[in-house]
């Protein structure tokens, strides 16, 4: 045992054993459901808890949108129930009621009053020029993008992150190609997301003016939405209304007026303001009166 040759041979035998065992176990480990080895660094380090951080970074992006003026868990968060950036994109219903200015409330004591000089204490938005309020800073929204990207990396299964990011990239940063790539990445991770398909359709329609592709993805979005169960459909009426009204507009622009009316009828079923949609239907029907009637086609 004292001979270096024996020790060397033993080491060699141990190494052979270890490599053999690793080769045997590796395929099983890869196929194991709990394996983190196939994921990115966040998955390896954090596992599923990364989703918790994803939400924090999403909120961080919203705090950046307000140049750091943001409620903490101790403040009146009612005012900031919905992330402002998401609301601005139209991705979610607004629950803000106009009292965002006062989440700090009246000054409680001298410490609170004095402390307010040392952190952002005014409600501003990055795309309005930020704290200097000179209304020249639309491109300042670039500052929220790193946190949104990080949030998407940490929780790739949240479609809202992709749609919100794509909105800001396309609308304010005029980075259509980047928005396109990001939405496709989101679609790969969430193949059934009607939200991402809707945003992708908007990109094709508004930025590339490719109505055919826009129509395709929106119709696909409608099909995905229709596959939802009744409860989920009930919770996601707004996006269905948006998709169908956009499709209606697209068909109206293309001269397919009966089809546009059909989409508006579909939208009316979920809309909170069916009267407004009815007015649009009436307008289109007036236009149609001057044209030859066309037989209705199957929508979906």
């Amino acid at each position: 045992m004292n001979s270096p040759r024996i020790i060397f041979l033993l080491l060699l035998a141990l190494l052979v054993f270890c490599f053999g065992l690793a080769a045997q176990l590796s395929p099983q480990f890869q196929s194991w459901r709990g394996s983190r080895s196939g994921g990115d660094i966040f998955n390896v380090v954090l596992g599923d808890s990364r989703r918790m951080f994803a939400q924090s970074f999403y909120v961080k992006a919203d705090a950046y949108y307000h140049s750091g003026y943001y409620p903490t868990m101790f403040d009146n968060k009612e005012a900031f129930q919905t992330q402002h950036m998401a609301e601005d994109t139209g991705a979610v219903n607004s629950n803000n009621h106009g009292d965002e200015e006062s989440f700090l409330g009246p000054k409680r004591n001298w410490i609170d009053a004095f402390g307010r000089h040392f952190f952002p204490d005014r409600h501003t938005h990055l795309d309005e020029g930020g704290p200097t309020d000179d209304l020249s800073g639309s491109e300042n929204v670039r500052e929220i993008l790193p946190w949104l990207k990080l949030s998407a990396d940490l929780d790739p299964d949240n479609p809202q992150t992709y749609t919100v990011t794509a909105y800001w990239l396309r609308e304010r940063m005029h980075k259509v190609a980047e928005a396109d790539v990001f939405l496709h990445e989101g679609l790969r991770n969430n193949p059934d997301s009607y939200d991402i398909l809707f945003e992708l359709g908007r990109l094709y329609d508004e930025s590339y003016h490719d109505t055919a592709r826009a129509r395709n993805v929106w119709e696909e979005a409608v099909r995905k939405w229709m596959k939802l169960d009744a409860d989920a459909q009930s919770d996601n009426k707004l996006v269905f209304e948006q998709i169908t009204t956009h499709l209606a507009q697209l068909e109206e622009n293309a001269g397919n007026l009966p089809r546009a009316i059909d989409w508006l009828h579909a939208a009316q079923k979920v809309s909170l303001t069916p009267d407004v949609l009815q007015k649009r239907i009436d307008d289109i029907q007036k236009k149609m009166a001057a044209l030859i009637p066309v037989a209705p086609a199957k929508l979906y």
Partner: peptide, 10 residues
């Protein structure tokens, strides 16, 4: 980050 070298605040 989205080919934008001007992002600074993060």
């Amino acid at each position: 980050i989205f080919n934008d070298p001007k992002i600074a605040r993060y």
